[in-house]
Design a protein around this nucleic acid. Structure first.
Lengths: 213, 213
DNA sequence: TTCTGTGTTAATGTATACAATTATACTTGT
DNA sequence: ACAAGTATAATTGTATACATTAACACAGAA
């Protein structure tokens, strides 16, 4: 193993982040360190460290009453897609320019998984493979700044994405678009990859709007 | 006062963030909690909370040896400007659509300050007023997501910006561009504001490259 | 020499005690 | 009844002790 063990604080962070982003806690809800500590069976120290990270992500806020859940609203979603439309093409272009052959092979593997789950119509697995595809492209850009910014934007949408992939034809369309994007990247065609991914993000936004209205 | 008192942990966070972003610590340098604790005269608890936030901002990384300073490299700068070019126009447009008259008045005040300091050629004050101008537009967009993303990008450039504003003609150009952008926003001309700020960010990137080569 | 194992050291990770602040409920005076 | 003040409780903020883990140096055998 090359990375450090996952600490309790890390686990708490991941759990809370996930719970907040999927809407487990409602917007404006107030949490307290003591209760989290009691419920999760750990001391306040790792809880607080997780909270500081969530605070830095702006999905919670501190007040004297306790921790206020901010989460993600529908209005946020619109802006998130506006932003992704504008910078995700940059990631695709950068991926074409910087990805290793190994990277491209891994991207293909992710795509095969998505294909498999789309046929089996397993919504959660489709959603994860879909996310992995985008995240892989982000990291293939070899820019930590770009990857982090896009990863942050991407994960904030998860609450609204499940309905979108549950519809088979929508899931199939997304898969086809991923396939085209993959081909463009594998052929090292930066212009095409960029334009395809921009179109894909726009389509994803529309599919998401259809399914959440 | 409407916000909570600034805790020691918050102060430590701000200090460390600033020190890292201005290049006080060199890339790859290893810090330890104990030494920070000793040097800053506080216990490890607030230190650790500050570190978790810095980690979340990806300007430090944890390893078993200690805290590794990541900071910002020249290559990061290029990508940061690429990203700003693509999304800062969104902020200007959104600001035009959502800003209150009070907001616009405040923006004007910031601009006046920048004008004052530019005449007096006080580099640090120019730099701060310049930052404030952009940050005000970010917050005028009324989108927390957009504001946070742009603020993160903006503050990561500070190490490289000082030289840029030290040259009077470059500082004057930046001021003129800000003036035009302000006018477009005050006239509620979204298209113009967007195109002007995009051009301004591109110019700022060029000015920065000139001054750092 | 070089590799391996082991003891030591130094670092992070966690729990807990206590301090300080703030909200809340209650009481008391008008 | 209502306002103000006060005591109480609950919450976050910090320090410290201890646990755990990983790096390092060194010794000894191959």
């Amino acid at each position: 193993m090359e990375h450090r063990n996952i600490s309790i604080a890390d686990q708490i962070f991941e759990k809370l982040e996930k719970d907040i982003l999927i809407g487990e806690y409602s917007r404006g809800e107030i949490l307290t360190e003591s209760k989290l500590s009691e419920n999760l069976g750990v001391s306040r120290t790792p809880i607080r460290e997780a909270l500081r990270r969530l605070e830095q992500e702006h999905i919670i806020e501190m007040s004297s009453k306790g921790i206020v859940v901010v989460g993600i609203s529908k209005e946020d979603i619109d802006m998130i897609y506006e932003m992704r439309v504008r910078i995700e093409g940059l990631a695709a272009r950068s991926a074409v320019e910087n990805a290793s052959e190994e990277d491209i092979k891994e991207l293909r593997d992710i795509l095969s998984l998505q294909e498999f789950y789309t046929h089996k119509e397993e919504a959660d697995n489709i959603k994860n493979a879909d996310s992995d595809f985008h995240k892989k492209i982000y990291s293939m850009s070899k820019s930590v700044t770009l990857r982090d910014a896009l990863t942050d934007l991407h994960k904030k949408v998860i609450k609204f994405r499940r309905a979108s992939v549950s519809n088979h034809s929508r899931a199939k369309n997304a898969l086809d678009e991923h396939m085209s994007i993959y081909n463009a990247i594998a052929e090292r065609n930066a212009d095409l990859a960029e334009s395809l991914i921009v179109k894909h993000v726009e389509n994803a936004r529309n599919r998401l709007k259809e399914s959440n209205n």
